[in-house]
Design a protein around this nucleic acid. Structure first.
Length: 609
DNA sequence: ACTAATACACTGGAGCTGCT
DNA sequence: AGCAGCTCCAGTGTATTAGT
């Protein structure tokens, strides 16, 4: 109500109120007739604007696109690209373009704002949008008409590049193509383009940061024994706890295949007990099955211990389907065992020597009482930050989604308390961690996706998925932002929110990187960010695995050491895929109407090349 | 025909600056 | 301090194209 009183300046035409007289006056001009309106013309084109700031914004863009480009085209040798494009415009289907004379074919205002438009069918003059002179003189700013001008339309930007219709990729100066990016955290690289670097940072450096417990080391109050497993060691530097199955009692001389089948119950028992103690936490688990084996050679009988290691598997607390997870692990182990056998090494499995469970706990941040939005998000109207003084910000967000506050971004959260009785929070503990969200979703018939946000001074802020809802599309879908401090914020306008990152992200990518990316996408038929991510991971894994396999062989040969041990902290691709949903669920979400896709930029700023 | 993606014009909110 | 003008920013509406 206070806000309403402050808006003391009403518009006589429509009654709308403003807090500043200047805003009211500015608004009133929108009611003026065309003749009465003040006009701010663009010095670079013939467009006119009601407001000076809009004219300035437009003119900057107009000027930005105007300078001559650097590259010639195959069909227009020696002709600047823009002129070549303009030729297409002016020599295509006859138009009423006012500049459509031979002398004026070098129209400098060809619309280059969208790459697809420029290169395919709709190269238009940004001056006139196909208007005749009379239309232009009326000072109207019509909708941007686009005309079919090219006799043969191509289907995509990537195809155009591949066809070399316009820009020769190898004509890009060497110093541009050689520009590579390296990870500021681990110096890994080079990355082909910014996508990959961002992705690397998110996957490798961001996830561990999310879960501070990882960095602290094993819990000090850990019970030494869980089920039939005994805590063998706590790798403080990796935050991992190694639980070994009691060899004497359970597995001595066990047949490996039979052991794997029997181990399901043991593991299930272990996990249930583990989460009884830390029910709010999620863990990442990796199993190592050590098997004694032998083979007969000309030199005689050889023996060795083979270590079969599973992929890391994430388990989101007690609410996860433990049975399913355990089955996955068993299948993984069996598959690896078979693979090793089928490789024809000649080793014969004798017995299980050791069964180790490596547990890395992570304690996801949980929503708690009000914290200020970071400076970078403060002015965003697409967020509603509940001003709660308890640990129920999660519920406040849900309630505000159901009944959005009318005035003010904060409102009085107390008014939403009345809704709380409508939610089934049985089994949910406050503050709510992301691990509990699937449980809440199921009980309340909602699809809730949790995004995380990180920012640091002089670094680009980032948004990433913490939990991607797998609930059916038909459910009410909402998106919450979990701040690093542990506070949920409702994203009331996902499009507006993502727009912020879209703009920033693209500002950091050079055109060369963009073109290289497009070439890669075309070559490998990538259609989604998920495809790109998978491609990156595949290539990366293949390269690394080759190097690593050589190293492993060498260490086995020289020191009888299995170099693949000690990977407890790593996030393997299956794990990333499960948690981050790269190439899987993420695609489904990002292509849904509720989610703004990662923008596929068509803009080509030729002047920056 | 429909959906998704994109660019850009337009609008209100709000901060900054200079003047009185 | 109050005001006016300027400017930037975030959000929205809409025209348009690509893809299915």
């Amino acid at each position: 109500m206070e806000i309403m009183h402050r808006k003391q300046w009403p518009c006589a035409e429509c009654g709308r109120r403003f807090s500043k007289k200047g805003d009211r006056d500015r608004h009133r001009r929108t009611h003026l007739n065309r003749e009465e309106r003040p006009v701010y013309p663009c010095p670079h084109c013939k467009k006119r604007f009601l407001r000076k700031d809009n004219q300035q914004k437009h003119s900057r863009l107009c000027l930005f696109h105007a300078p001559a480009p650097l590259y010639a085209t195959p069909n227009n040798q020696g002709v600047p690209l823009e002129i070549a494009l303009c030729n297409v415009h002016h020599t295509g289907i006859p138009t009423d373009h006012p500049d459509d004379s031979l002398e004026n074919r070098q129209c400098e205002n060809v619309q280059l704002s969208t790459m697809t438009n420029t290169l395919t069918s709709s190269v238009g003059c940004r001056d006139c949008h196909g208007q005749n002179e009379e239309e232009q003189n009326r000072g109207e700013t019509p909708p941007a008409k686009r005309r079919l001008t090219s006799p043969k339309q191509s289907t995509s930007f990537a195809e155009q590049i591949n066809d070399k219709k316009f820009v020769y990729f190898d004509e890009i100066p060497l110093n541009e193509t050689n520009r590579a990016e390296y990870c500021p955290h681990c110096n890994r690289g080079p990355f082909r383009h910014h996508f990959n670097l961002n992705q690397h940072i998110r996957d490798v450096h961001l996830l561990p940061r999310l879960h501070p417990a990882n960095q602290v080391g094993g819990g000090s109050d850990v019970e030494q024994r869980i089920g039939r497993f005994t805590l063998e060691e706590t790798a403080a530097n990796r935050g991992a706890e190694n639980y070994a199955l009691d060899v004497q009692a359970d597995i001595e001389d066990a047949d490996p295949d039979k052991f794997i089948l029997d181990s399901n119950d043991l593991l299930l028992d272990f996990l249930s007990k583990y989460f009884q103690q830390w029910d709010k936490q999620a863990i990442k688990m990796q199993l190592v099955l050590s098997i004694r084996c032998h083979r007969l050679t000309l030199e005689g009988r050889q023996t060795m211990t083979m270590h079969i290691r599973t992929d890391p598997i994430g388990i989101m607390g007690v609410h996860d389907n433990l049975e399913e997870r355990v089955n996955e692990i068993a299948q993984d182990l069996t598959r690896r065992l078979d693979e090793a056998e089928n490789r024809g090494s000649g080793w014969i499995y004798d017995s299980v020597e050791k069964f180790l469970v490596e547990v890395t706990r992570f304690d996801p941040i949980r929503g708690s009482k009000f914290v200020q939005l970071p400076d970078t998000l403060k002015s965003m109207q697409s967020l509603i930050n509940p001003h709660n003084d308890d640990d129920q910000c999660f519920l406040f967000c849900i309630a505000m989604f159901d009944d959005p506050p009318k005035d003010g971004a904060f409102g009085n959260v107390k008014v939403f308390n009345k809704y709380f009785a409508e939610y089934d929070v049985q089994g949910v503990t406050f503050p709510v961690s992301p691990a509990q969200v699937p449980h809440f979703e199921k009980r309340n018939g909602r699809a809730i996706t949790i995004l995380g946000y990180e920012w640091a001074k002089e670094e680009q802020d980032r948004v990433y998925i913490i939990y991607a809802s797998t609930m059916p599309e038909s459910m009410p879908r909402m998106f919450l932002l979990l701040l690093e401090e542990g506070h949920y914020v409702l994203i009331k306008n996902l499009r507006g929110f993502m727009n912020h990152f879209r703009k920033k992200w693209w500002e950091t990518i050079t055109e060369t990187q963009y073109q290289q990316a497009m070439l890669v996408w075309k070559t490998f038929s990538c259609k989604t960010i998920g495809d790109d991510a998978q491609l990156y991971c595949r290539v990366d894994t293949i390269l690394l695995s080759t190097v690593f396999e050589r190293f492993r062989k060498q260490t086995m040969q020289d020191f009888d050491l299995e170099a693949s041990s000690g990977r407890g902290q790593d996030y393997g691709f299956p794990e990333i895929r499960r948690c981050g949903n790269i190439g899987g669920q993420q695609d489904a979400i990002w292509s849904s109407q509720h989610w703004t896709k990662i923008p596929f930029r068509h803009s080509l700023n030729l002047t920056s090349l």
